[in-house]
Amino acid sequence: MEQRINFQEKGAGAMKTLFSIGAYLKKSPLDQKLQVLVEYRVSQINGCAYCLDMHSKDAMEHGEDAKRLFCVAAWRETPFFTDRERAALAWAEAVTACQVPDAIYTRVKEHFTEEELVDLTLVVSSINTWNRFNIAFSNPAAVGTYRAGQFG
């Protein structure tokens, strides 16, 4: 498949809005390492190759262990994640599926303040949006070209 639209060029206004969300989240009280872990998991669910490449590199740059990245799709079955990370991953999966049961909300509220939970939901929503742009407009030639921290 070839690139359909260079959405970063043709949709500069829309992209500016998405980049401003990213700038806001960099100042969030949520740990950057956790944010990237959630972005990686959501990108796995959505099958976004460009974002998986990007967030695996960013995760490693933030000190993430490769073993954890290799196993994040099976986070429930591994001992590698904290209870807070497990709550965030469960929340990310539920929000991505647009099905958030009370049990997951109750669990995540045990580990995150209300402000953090709003920001975590914004992380999930934002990466879902990026995944959809990358998948809809496809640019397979770009996969593998990202450098850690390239977009700030």
Rank of each mutant, 00 (worst) to 15 (best):
F137G: 01
E39R: 14
T129E: 00
L122H: 10
G152S: 11
K10M: 08
N131D: 01
P29D: 09
R147H: 10
E115M: 10
D102N: 12
A92W: 03
K16C: 03
K26S: 13
K16S: 13
Y146M: 05
T129K: 01
V72W: 00
E61Q: 12
Y40W: 10
D31Q: 13
Q3C: 07
Y105N: 12
A136S: 14
C98G: 07
R41Y: 08
V143P: 03
H111L: 01
T96D: 08
D102C: 04
A59H: 05
G63K: 08
Y24G: 09
V108T: 15
N6E: 12
L34W: 07
F7W: 15
L122E: 08
D65L: 12
I21M: 14
G13K: 15
P101N: 07
Y24L: 13
L18Y: 05
Q32A: 13
T145P: 01
G144Y: 08
M1G: 14
E116I: 05
M54K: 07
R84S: 02
K10R: 12
A73Y: 00
A12S: 15
A66P: 12
K57L: 06
D65N: 14
G149M: 13
E93L: 09
A59I: 10
L18H: 03
D58F: 04
A49R: 10
A141M: 11
K27S: 14
Q3F: 02
A49T: 06
Q3Y: 03
F80T: 01
E77H: 10
K67G: 00
E85W: 02
F137H: 05
P29T: 15
Q3N: 06
I135W: 01
F7T: 11
C98E: 07
F81D: 04
N6Y: 05
A90K: 14
V108F: 03
T121I: 07
R41H: 13
L25Y: 04
L117S: 10
G13T: 13
Y146N: 06
R84H: 03
W130R: 00
A66C: 02
